[in-house]
């Protein structure tokens, strides 16, 4: 039996909504099949007021063993570093976060806000928000650069806006069943099993990417979304086209450009007008190229690819 406590800071509850839609395994499977005891969750917990406060205090003191502490949302520091804009169970949430993290065997940050600050931490960051162990790309965050949970692992970051529900439940199962040693984390403390490949991996538009055929308007099923509509699939680490959303589809499959929401810089360009759903260019060349590709190679490859483009790639293949 592994005790799990889930709290929310500066959050929209999107990751909770996502979590409750998990299928492989489902949120119920965590309890019935994998021995996870959910001590409290903002949408599932029955306790209120003093009863809830007592659970939190018992976790901090060790009276209740806290195996997994899950945090969703940013850690709010405003105003003036006090964190009182986000009070919870009688005190600033940031104080609970620090004490519960120190008491837990594993600390898991769910979603962009908890991992690196996400949208709330976008300039001018009025709530002085940070993630648990990062603020955007900078390590530190609320718990500090050197933080390690009792298990010896730093915060396990599962980013996304929201995170895919099955990324969440599968990592929780791994931790709860004693397989945390199998997890390897990347430089941003994301489990590599999910965040080594790209959003583009498995994208149904890869043929059009290869032949440099661009989607020029929303709703077109032909063409690649990278060239004109700002898709970040070739630069974003996520399994969105391997582990499909609702087991059905993904943003790019549905004709929606990837926004890069599993990367620490999300939302990119501080959401300035003209930067969303628009490929940023300099003298006709994309400012950001597929990861690992330099400008000169990109230009040469484009010439060769366009020359090799077959006729069918220019036509609408989705005729029915």
């Amino acid at each position: 039996m592994a005790n799990l406590l889930w709290l929310q800071g500066g959050a929209c509850s999107g990751n909770t909504m996502s979590f409750l839609n998990a299928e492989e395994p489902s949120a119920c499977d965590l309890v019935t099949d994998f021995g996870i005891n959910i001590l409290w969750h903002p949408s599932l917990g029955m306790e209120l007021g003093n009863d809830l406060q007592q659970i939190l205090k018992d976790c901090v003191s060790g009276k209740i063993k806290l195996d997994i502490f899950v945090f969703e949302g940013t850690v709010v520091n405003a105003p003036d570093g006090t964190g009182t804009w986000n009070r919870f169970a009688g005190r600033p949430m940031k104080e609970w976060v620090k004490e519960l993290s120190a008491a837990a065997d594993f600390v898991v940050a769910i979603g962009d806000c908890a991992t690196w600050g996400g949208i709330p931490a976008t300039a001018p960051n009025p709530t002085d928000s940070v993630g648990l162990q990062f603020l955007k790309k900078n390590i530190g965050g609320a718990l500090g650069k050197t933080f390690k949970a009792k298990s010896g692992l730093p915060v396990i970051n599962i980013p996304g806006c929201p995170a895919h529900p099955d990324w969440v439940t599968q990592i929780l199962v791994a931790v709860a069943t004693g397989r945390a040693g199998d997890l390897t984390l990347d430089e941003y403390q994301r489990p590599k099993t999910f965040f080594q490949s790209f959003t583009q991996t498995g994208c149904t538009r890869n043929m059009h990417f290869a032949y440099k055929v661009s989607t020029t308007q929303f709703g077109q099923r032909n063409g690649c979304l990278f060239y004109d509509l700002g898709c970040r699939g070739p630069m974003t680490h996520s399994p969105c086209n391997r582990i499909l959303w609702n087991r059905q589809s993904s943003k790019t499959r549905a004709g929606m450009p990837c926004l890069g929401c599993t990367e620490p810089e999300f939302p990119f360009h501080d959401l300035m007008p003209g930067t969303v759903f628009k490929t940023q260019t300099v003298m006709g060349v994309p400012k950001e190229l597929p990861l690992g590709v330099d400008k000169s190679s990109y230009i040469k490859y484009t010439g060769a690819a366009k020359a090799a483009t077959p006729k069918w790639a220019e036509e609408d293949m989705f005729v029915v």
Binding site: S214, T216, T302, G303, A307, E314
Partner: peptide, 17 residues
């Protein structure tokens, strides 16, 4: 045009709407 993203080589057409 030949290398331009909006150009359809086979149709000889600029596909920028």
């Amino acid at each position: 045009c030949m290398e331009c993203m909006y150009y359809l080589n086979h149709r000889k057409w600029c596909n920028l709407p």
